[in-house]
Write a protein that binds this DNA or RNA. Structure first.
Length: 876
RNA sequence: GGGAGAUUAGCUCAGUUGGUUCAGAGCACCUGCCUUACAAGCAGGGGGCCACAGGUUCGAGUCCUGUAUCUCCCACCA
C-alpha cells in the first residue's frame, strides 16, 4: 500500500516547487527564435497588498502565460509596481500626521526621504504575495515606475510632447480635491447621487425697493463669489430685472443681471446665481459675459480672504452658517429637498471643488485618432467585444488631459522657471534646461540657481501609460533586442474600470511613441464581488484575506475557485465554497496518484478489456484537448478549466481508472500501467496552467524524473482532429451502465448483491468486447445474450437494445405501465417528426442534412417503438 | 438625459451560423452506500412556458419590434 496520506497537503509542496522553478530559472525569458508571447502585469500600487481582485487578475495572466509556455511560445510576463502618486502620498501624509509632522513643515526633500522609506518598507510585498499564488513572472525584469531609467523615460516623453506642441500650461477650471489638495483628471471624479437641498434665496435689486431676484442653488456658500445673476431673455417672470444690478446677500456686492439662454426657464426659479470661480458652467458664462471671477476657497476647502465674512471656516460649515444668516436677514425663501449628482474624488472620496488653477495639459485630439482606429479596425481586440462602445464613446468625447498634480511623490514636471517670471523652459534635466535657458535669454551667465523647477508632479497614469514600452527599455534603449522581440505584447489582462485611465492611454502612447499598438488582445474581467453581489470592501468585512485563503485551501484551490466563476466581462461572485471545490479536486487528483502508486507491475500482456479502455481514453483526451484549445483561443478560461476538471474527474478517474484497476492485491500489466501513467501525464499537462503546484507534484511522482524535468517543459502533443469511432461506442456502454445502476437502486439491490443481465439485441458483436467491463461495473454473475424476453425480469432499454434483469418478485402491472409510458413518449415524438416531414415547405426549404436527420430520427423511433410494443405484447 | 448589456433550474452561468432527443453545466438539494485510491468520496435522482406580448420563418433561448425589471458606463441643469 502507498505511504501517501489520503489528503493532499499543499503547504509544503507549493513552496517547494516555487523555489525549484525559480532555481531552474523557468520563468525567465530571453529573445530567441520561438514566437514570443508577452504580457505586462498591470502594476499594482507599490505599497499595496494582495486582495481578491489581484488574485483574479493575476491568476488569469498566469494561466495564459503557462499555457503558452507549454505550447511552444517564448513567454515573458513582466512584473512590477506603480508608484501610485496620489494613493501613496496620502498614505505617507497620514503616517506623518500621526507623528505630528506636516509635509509643508519639513519640505520636499525630507518628505521624499520619508516617502522612500515607506516605499522600501512596504514596497514589493505584493510581489512576494504573487509568488505564493504561483505567478510565473519573469522576476529578473521586475520594474517600478519610478526607477531611474523609467523616470527618465517619463520625462523625455513629456519633453517630446511639449516640443510637438501637444503639452501646454494654462489656467483652467479643474477638479480640485481639497483633501489631497491637488487637481485631478476628469476620470478620477466619480459622480454620486446625493440627497441635497435646493435653497431659494432673495437677491435685492439695486434701486428697486421690495423687488428681488430669487435664485435656486444647492451651494449657498458660493454666493460669496457671485459676480452676476443670470436669467433667460425670454422669461417674462424676470423681464423687469433686465439691465439692473442685484445685490449679493450678506456680501452687499452689486452684480449685473445678465441674460443667457443657458438658463433653463423650467428649472428652479429660472434665476441663476453665477459664480465663475466655482462652477464649470458659471465659468463659461463668466467668459462669455466678461464677468469677474472671485475665488473664495483656499486649497483645503476653507474660505479665504475673498469671502472674509467666514474666513477660515470649512465649506460645509459655512453652508450651514450662511443659511442661518440668510434666514435671519429674511432673504431665505424656502428650502426644498433635492437629489443631485455630486462629483467625488475617486481617491479621497470628498466632494470635488471645481477650481480655477494653473495646470499642465496634454492635447488629446491627435493622440486619440490612431487609438480609435486600432480598436475600430480590430487591430486591437477587446474581450468581450461590447466594451468597444464604451471605449469609442470616451475617445470621441475626450477632453484635454490635466497632467499636473500638486503632490510631491512622483515625477516632478521638467519645466524650469526663469527668475521672476512666468517664462520657462522644458527639458528632461537641469543641465539641459540651463542650456536651453541660456539660449532662450541669450544670457550665458545664467546658473542653475536662476532656475526653479515646477513643484508639481505628473499624474501617475502619465508614467504607467508607457509601461508596455519602458519595461522593455523601449525608451531608454530604443531598438534594443527586447523591445524588438517582445513588443507589441500579446495580451493585456485587466478590469474594465481602467479602460480610460490606462488601457486607452497605453494605446495612445504605443502609437505615438512606437508607432505601433502596445498589445493585441485586451481581456477584461469583472469586479470581484461577494456571493450577494456586493463589492468587496474593508468596511463590509466581506473581503477574504487572500493569503489566509491560500494557507487554508492551497494556491491551486484558490485559483480554481476564482476561475470557476470568472467568464470574461462578468462580475465574479466569489464564494469560499468554490475554493473548497478546488481543494476537493486537488484531493481527488492526489488519490488517483495514490491508486496508481500502489500498483504492482507484472509482465503479462494487457487484457482485451484494458486495451479497449486504453484506446478509448486516448481518444477521449484527444477529443477534449481540441475543446480545451478552442476555449483558450476564445479566452473562455473558466470553460477550459471546467473541461479539464471533468476530463480528470469523470473520464479519467471515474471511468478509466475503474476500468483498468486490478482487483485488490493483483498486479497490473506493464503495458496498461505505461498507458495509464501517460494518460495521467497528459491530463495533468492540460490542467497545469490552472493548478500549477499539484500538477507538478503529481507529475513528478508518477515516474522517476531526472533533475531539471518539469511539467512546464512538456510540450503538449497536437491531438488528432479525427473523432475516433470508439468514443461513440463507449457512450452507449456508459449509458447502459448508468441505466442499469439506476435499475439496481430502484429495485432495491444492494451494491454487494449480484445481478444477472440478459441482453436482447441485434448487435451482439457490439457488446461482446465489453462484457467483462460490464461485469466489473455492474457486479453481475452472468451476462448472456437472448433472443426472447426473459421471464420474471425487469426490463430497460438503451437505444434499441433491451436488457432483462431477473427479479425475485416482478410486478407485471408496473412493468406494463412502464412500457406503456415509454411507448406513449415515443409515439408523441414520432408524431412530431412525422408532422415535420409531411410539411412540404419543411422538406423543400430545410437543408438536406436537417431533413435527413429528421428521417433518421423517424426510423430510429419506429424501431424503438417496435421493440417496446413487442415487449408489451410478450408481457401479456 | 445619452449609451451598453442582461433576464434560461433554488444560486452562478453556458447555449457558437436559427435545425439532431435542445433545454445544458457547476454548485445547492433529495435518496442510497464507510464498495481496499479518495466520505474533501462513490452511485443514483428530482428540478426550467428559456422575463412578458407580438412578429419573421417550414422551424425561434437563438433573429426583429414593443413592454417590464435589473446592472453598468457616460453626462456641467443651478
Amino acid at each position: 500500500m502507498s505511504t501517501l496520506s489520503t489528503k493532499y497537503d499543499p503547504s509544503q509542496i507549493e513552496d517547494k516547487w516555487y523555489a525549484a522553478w525559480l532555481e531552474a530559472n523557468l520563468f525567465h525569458s530571453e529573445p530567441d527564435e520561438r514566437p514570443a508571447y508577452s504580457i505586462v502585469i498591470p502594476p499594482p500600487n507599490v505599497t499595496g497588498i494582495l486582495h481578491m481582485g489581484h488574485v483574479l487578475d493575476n491568476t488569469l495572466q498566469d494561466v495564459l502565460i503557462r499555457r503558452k509556455r507549454m505550447t511552444g511560445f517564448n513567454t515573458c510576463w513582466v512584473p512590477g509596481t506603480d508608484h501610485a502618486s496620489i494613493a501613496t502620498e496620502s498614505k505617507v501624509v497620514a503616517k506623518l500626521a500621526e507623528e505630528g509632522i506636516r509635509k509643508e513643515d519639513i519640505g520636499r526633500e525630507k518628505y521624499l526621504e520619508h516617502a522612500y522609506a515607506w516605499k522600501d518598507k512596504y514596497g514589493g510585498i505584493i510581489l512576494h504575495q504573487l509568488k505564493k499564488l504561483g505567478c510565473s513572472c519573469d522576476w529578473d525584469r521586475t520594474n517600478f515606475t519610478m526607477n531611474p531609467d523609467y523616470s527618465k523615460a517619463v520625462l523625455e516623453v513629456f519633453c517630446k510632447l511639449f516640443e510637438k506642441g501637444l503639452i501646454y500650461r494654462g489656467i483652467r477650471m479643474v477638479n480640485w480635491d481639497p483633501k489631497a489638495q491637488t487637481a485631478i483628471s476628469d476620470e478620477e471624479v466619480n459622480y454620486k447621487s446625493i440627497q441635497g437641498k435646493l435653497y431659494h434665496i432673495r437677491y435685492p435689486i439695486e434701486g428697486m425697493e421690495d423687488s428681488y431676484a430669487i435664485v435656486a442653488t444647492t451651494r449657498p456658500e458660493t454666493l460669496l463669489g457671485d459676480t452676476a445673476v443670470a436669467i433667460n431673455p425670454v422669461d417674462d417672470r424676470w423681464a423687469h430685472l433686465k439691465g439692473k444690478q442685484a445685490i449679493v446677500p450678506l456680501v452687499g456686492r452689486p452684480v449685473p443681471i445678465i441674460e443667457d439662454e443657458y438658463v433653463k426657464t423650467d428649472f428652479g426659479t429660472g434665476c441663476l446665481k453665477v459664480t465663475p470661480a466655482h462652477d464649470i458652467n458659471d465659468y463659461e458664462l463668466g467668459i462669455k459675459h466678461g464677468l469677474d471671477s472671485i475665488d473664495i476657497f483656499s486649497d483645503d476647502g476653507t474660505i479665504n480672504e475673498s469671502g472674509d465674512l467666514y474666513l477660515g471656516q470649512d465649506r460645509f460649515a459655512v453652508r450651514k452658517e450662511i443659511v442661518k444668516d440668510l434666514e435671519e436677514a429674511g432673504l431665505l425663501v424656502k428650502i426644498e429637498p433635492y437629489a443631485h449628482e455630486v462629483g467625488h474624488s475617486e481617491r479621497t472620496d470628498v466632494p470635488i471643488e471645481p477650481k480655477l488653477s494653473m495646470q499642465w495639459f496634454l492635447k488629446m485630439e491627435e493622440l486619440v485618432k490612431p487609438a480609435l482606429n486600432a480598436v475600430n479596425e480590430g487591430d486591437i481586440k477587446l474581450i468581450p467585444g461590447r466594451f468597444i462602445n464604451t471605449y469609442r464613446h470616451w475617445l470621441e468625447n475626450i477632453q484635454d488631459w490635466c497632467l499636473s498634480r500638486q503632490l510631491w511623490w512622483g515625477h516632478q514636471i521638467p519645466a524650469y522657471y526663469l527668475k521672476g517670471g512666468n517664462d520657462y523652459v522644458v527639458a528632461s534635466s537641469l543641465e539641459e534646461a540651463l542650456e536651453e535657458a541660456q539660449k532662450k535669454t541669450g544670457d550665458s551667465s545664467l546658473t542653475a540657481k536662476d532656475l526653479t523647477q515646477d513643484p508639481d508632479v505628473l499624474d501617475t497614469w502619465a508614467s504607467s501609460w508607457l509601461w508596455p514600452i519602458e519595461v522593455f527599455k523601449g525608451l531608454s534603449e530604443p531598438g534594443n533586442p527586447d523591445i524588438t522581440y517582445y513588443y507589441p505584447t500579446q495580451t493585456l489582462v485587466t478590469g474594465p474600470d481602467i479602460i480610460f485611465f490606462w488601457v486607452a492611454r497605453m494605446i495612445m502612447a504605443g502609437y505615438e511613441i512606437m508607432g505601433e499598438k502596445p498589445f493585441e488582445d485586451v481581456y477584461l474581467h469583472g469586479l470581484v464581488r461577494d456571493k450577494k453581489r456586493r463589492k468587496m470592501s474593508k468596511s463590509l468585512g466581506n473581503s477574504p484575506d487572500a493569503l489566509k485563503l491560500i494557507d487554508d485551501f492551497g494556491a491551486d484551490g484558490v485559483r480554481m475557485g476564482m476561475l470557476l466563476s470568472a467568464p470574461a466581462g462578468n462580475d465574479i461572485l466569489f464564494d469560499e465554497s468554490l475554493v473548497e471545490q478546488g481543494r476537493n479536486f486537488c484531493n481527488k487528483i492526489w488519490n488517483s496518484l495514490r491508486l496508481v502508486k500502489g500498483w504492482e507491475l507484472s509482465d503479462v500482456p494487457a487484457s482485451d478489456q484494458d486495451q479497449m479502455a486504453i484506446k478509448w481514453m486516448q481518444a477521449r483526451i484527444d477529443a477534449e484537448s481540441l475543446v480545451i484549445n478552442d476555449h483558450f483561443e476564445k479566452y473562455r478560461l473558466s470553460d477550459a478549466l471546467m473541461a479539464c476538471f471533468k476530463l480528470i474527474r469523470d473520464e479519467f478517474s471515474q471511468w478509466y481508472l475503474e476500468m483498468v484497476k486490478p482487483p485488490y492485491g493483483e498486479p497490473i500489466s506493464r503495458e496498461t500501467w505505461e498507458a495509464t501513467i501517460s494518460f495521467f501525464e497528459q491530463v495533468l499537462e492540460c490542467l497545469h496552467p490552472f493548478m500549477p503546484f499539484i500538477t507538478e507534484e503529481v507529475w513528478q511522482q508518477l515516474r522517476d524524473r531526472k533533475e531539471g524535468d518539469f511539467i512546464v517543459l512538456q510540450q503538449q502533443k497536437k491531438p488528432s482532429e479525427v473523432m475516433h469511432p470508439i468514443l461513440e461506442e463507449f457512450e452507449l456502454i456508459k449509458e447502459l451502465v448508468t441505466k442499469i445502476r439506476a435499475f439496481r437502486v430502484e429495485n432495491g439491490f444492494s451494491p454487494k448483491e449480484q445481478i444477472s443481465l440478459f441482453l436482447k439485441t441485434k448487435d451482439e458483436e457490439r457488446f461482446i468486447p465489453y462484457t467483462s467491463l460490464l461485469e466489473k461495473f455492474l457486479n453481475t454473475d452472468t451476462i448472456a445474450f437472448v433472443k426472447e424476453q426473459v421471464e420474471n425480469s425487469g426490463s430497460l432499454r438503451v437505444q434499441t437494445h433491451e436488457c432483462f434483469i431477473p427479479l425475485k418478485a416482478v410486478d407485471t402491472g408496473a412493468e406494463r405501465e412502464k412500457l406503456k409510458k415509454e411507448i406513449q413518449y415515443y409515439e408523441g415524438f414520432l408524431q412530431k417528426t412525422e408532422k415535420k416531414l409531411s410539411n412540404e415547405k419543411f422538406v423543400a426549404n430545410a437543408p438536406e442534412k436537417v431533413v435527413a436527420l429528421e428521417r433518421k430520427k423517424l426510423a430510429d423511433t419506429q424501431e424503438k417503438l417496435n421493440v417496446l410494443r413487442e415487449s408489451l405484447l410478450q408481457l401479456n
